[in-house]
Design a protein around this nucleic acid. Sequence first.
DNA 1: CTCGCCGTTAACTGTTCGGTTAATCCGCTC
DNA 2: GAGCGGATTAACCGAACAGTTAACGGCGAG
Lengths: 209, 209
Amino acid sequence: MAETDAPDTEARILEAAHRVFLRRGTAGARTQEIADEAGVNKALLHYYFRTKDKLAEAVAMRAVGRLFPGILGALASDRPLREKLERVAAHELDMLEENPYLPGFLISEFQYQPERLRALLQTAVPLDERRAAIFGALQRQLDAEAEAGRLRPTRAEDLIVAVMGFLVFPFAAAPMLEAALGLDADARRAMAERRRADLPDLVLGAFAA
Amino acid sequence: MAETDAPDTEARILEAAHRVFLRRGTAGARTQEIADEAGVNKALLHYYFRTKDKLAEAVAMRAVGRLFPGILGALASDRPLREKLERVAAHELDMLEENPYLPGFLISEFQYQPERLRALLQTAVPLDERRAAIFGALQRQLDAEAEAGRLRPTRAEDLIVAVMGFLVFPFAAAPMLEAALGLDADARRAMAERRRADLPDLVLGAFAA
DNA sequence: CTCGCCGTTAACTGTTCGGTTAATCCGCTC
DNA sequence: GAGCGGATTAACCGAACAGTTAACGGCGAG
């Protein structure tokens, strides 16, 4: 189970912790399993990261930093709406392909430790400052589209949540969807590729006038 | 913290367990907390349900039984597509209003114990038999809509996942969306009410030709 | 009235787990 | 090649926790 014995032990521990926490959840993960997977003695975890909690925080920080900036950054830019959607889809689906369990992990952590992760998210991404910019720019575009009769009046938050619903939800709920609908990993990948192509049509169609 | 001292102790324990498991997750929940919340000695948990695991299973079974039958049953009926969507929205949003943390809980459990929950889902809902009916009926409707030029060619699984993305995802990700977008409980309720009215438009618009 | 039994409890047990400690290893410097 | 310091380990510790046990309470049957 040991990884390539890279020289940087600390990084190896963090990678192992990332895998184990995403597989078992923060509460379900065992430090021993992380140590084993890093090919290292359990005491080393505490040498580099003082507690399991701190290690979990480091992992959650990485996770948060991977999911949010892409989506929110792209939506806050000043590009045309359709192009924003294309970019979000391309960028996020690339990331999700490599980190398929990340959304489920984050939803779990936010569910069970909302305050903790709220604080963490704020230090990881300066959201409060940017929220006005994100919502503002997007809302103006939506208002213009509504004015032009192309979309019906639409709230920025509805569009953002819809986008995440299309992109992120299939990954977050992957094990559930596999059990309920028989949607296995191949089917999920295929669905992701369809979204890459048709996300703008789906979203713009959903809110079309 | 003790509930109304209802006569039926077993039911009271199950209710308490439901709340605690949904609040902390299966791995994070403590039997002591469940006992306290049920207003009962910890040993009684083991008297009625032999182990924490069995108790968690009972809770998960209830949870699965609440989320899936509504969605899948409505989509499998022989009503017109738009009416199916109206019914799914009405039925599921009623249920989600009363059980807002249920989707997050189920996503977590499926993520961390996929095999376990797959087995549980199969005993709770006879999906394998009905899957053909659900997919078949829905796919035929979608094919007919595509033939008539109203929708573009669409897979039943894409539509089901889209529906769940619109209805379930905002609840599953509620704490995350609150932290990231400032979407508090009131905003989420308002969004849910919008979905109740416009889900058919959203979904049919997304897949419109 | 009392015996038996289900429901309930306080106290206990064994184990798992996060965290600590003291010793060892090893590469570098002088 | 002695000594130093950071990296690493085996062994250990205490707390938290799921699960057990033995005793108790009260109520219905006889």
